[in-house]
Amino acid sequence: MGTPNKEEYAAFEDKVKRTVYIDNLSPRVTESVLRTALNQFGTVVNIQFIPNYLVPGNIPQCALIEMETSKQAFSIVSTLAQFPFMMSGMPRPVRARHAEAEMFDDRPIKPGRKLQFRWVDPSDPDFEVAKKLKHLCRKHSAEAAFMHTQQQKKEEDLTKQQEESLKQNYKKYEMIDGLLADGTARRLSCCYNINLGDD
């Protein structure tokens, strides 16, 4: 058990170092989109989307991208931190950070760890404490779920607000376009004696 286990874990840790975690991905992003997007930073070895089984709603995807070297992984993280990186849509940028061991579902057992457990019966003095902790666990997951809905609401609010401002912006540009097209701009420039052409 000893050495092959350790070797396996070392290999796994190396893989973790080479892997980048990307979130805020649109559900429309596919493996090939990711691959073409990130191939500019190096060779993409493997892509795995982290499935979401529990959190409801229209939430972004997360993915693990294994690169060939940890240097490439590092360059992705730093570049995506510097520039907002758009993938399959605008303007919400994706985020990248280094992967962690807990993100892999096929992670090997940490070598040298021994698991222990015991049953606590209702007669046990620890029973009450365990009950409290269990209750806390439930409560905390409910709290986290609430936080998720709040966050989603915030995101939707921001989307709406941006949609509005984008529409306004677009209208403005369209107006300018229209004015240029129908000659109003030219007439006005003559009127105010401004040279349009050079600008």
Binding site: N52, V55, M90, P91, Q152, T159, L166
Partner: peptide, 17 residues
Amino acid sequence: NLRVPSKSTSFPGHLVL
């Protein structure tokens, strides 16, 4: 229960004119 994947094609934060 497993999450039912949401049907909506839009993604909050991605705007299309």
